Simulated scan of single mutants.
Amino acid sequence: MHISGQIALVTGAGSGLGEATARRLAGQGARVVVMDMSQASADRVAGEIGGLALAADVSDPVAVEAAFERVQAELGTPRIVVNCAGIGTAARILPRDGTLPFEVFERTLRVNLFGSYVVLSLAARAMSTAEPLDADGARGVIVNTASVAYEDGQIGQAAYAASKGGIASMTLPAARELARFGIRVMTIAPGLFETAMSAGLPPGAKASLEAGLPFPSRMGKPDEYAMLVQAIVDNPLLNGAVIRIDSAVRLAPK
């Protein structure tokens, strides 16, 4: 699918991987909807790329549906939808204080997994009634974000790994179901990237993490994630798969 001239919606686009994706898609000629929990962050990015800023919590179906309705009314059908919204949590199943963190598990799955499903579902509904874009009958592409933790979950990542594993697992059945509408579904599983989360690490901790990355031995740059999104949109045969982008790392238990 050609990116230029298309409407793209990116969640979590006020920072990190989502922001980089929004900027890259805009640079390729897309009209980008910058969706984020923070209106201020969405406004900042949208103002710099000429996009539309929307604030919405992806775990709230009503808010997300209202956002899609606004996009449809003001711009038209988004043909490229990228799910970057999510939270990183760390909680042991059996903490030392004996407190069982059920709330952490529930919240992590609600934001990461349920939120991705909400956006995917509403994106698919919008795309399914749009006119095909090419001779193949393509109507759009949806890219979700998992994590290498879906396969290499570390101690303390039971909730996070479960949420990302769910995203990875729904990729193929979603792609198979939506194939009749000409909608592709892909998932990217990033490894260690330079985001707000990693920026808070002490220099020694960051160096230690990077030393475990085979090649290149550095954290990924957000635009390198965005480059993969662009490649997925451009290549019509990429469908129903999970792609790791991780410098060949396999995370240790802790």
Rank of each mutant, 00 (worst) to 15 (best):
A199Y: 08
A189L: 05
E65V: 00
G98Y: 13
N112C: 04
A67T: 02
P203A: 11
A46M: 06
E210F: 07
N239G: 04
I243L: 15
L237V: 03
L213M: 13
R96E: 15
G156W: 03
M37K: 02
D134H: 06
P132R: 05
R244N: 15
T77E: 10
A13N: 05
S163C: 06
A124K: 02
I243V: 13
A179W: 01
F102S: 14
F105M: 09
I142S: 02
V104Y: 11
G50W: 03
T11L: 05
S121Q: 14
L178A: 12
D60W: 03
T99I: 12
K164S: 14
G212N: 12
A158C: 07
K221Q: 15
G137F: 09
N144D: 13
S38I: 04
I167Y: 11
D43S: 13
P253L: 04
K164H: 08
V82M: 09
D97Y: 11
Q39F: 05
N83Y: 08
V45Y: 12
L120R: 03
R31A: 14
P173I: 09
A91S: 15
A159G: 02
N235M: 04
R44V: 00
V34S: 10
T89D: 13
G156K: 01
G191K: 08
A42K: 02
A22R: 01
I155H: 05
A175L: 02
A174D: 05
N235T: 11
Q28I: 01
G86D: 10
R79T: 13
I49A: 12
P95D: 15
V71I: 10
L120M: 11
R184N: 11
A211H: 10
P202A: 10
Q72R: 08
G212R: 12
E177V: 00
V33C: 05
P190N: 13
Q28F: 06
N83P: 00
A175V: 02
R79Q: 13
Q154Y: 04
S169Q: 09
G47H: 11
G165L: 08
R125F: 02
G191S: 10
K164I: 07
E65L: 01
K254L: 12
V148C: 04
M1W: 06
A13I: 01
R244Q: 15
P95W: 14
S121K: 14
A22E: 09
A175T: 03
S4C: 11
A73Q: 10
S4M: 05
I7M: 09
A123I: 00
A196V: 09
M170T: 00
A126L: 02
R110M: 10
A130K: 06
L201F: 15
I7K: 07
R139N: 09
L122G: 00
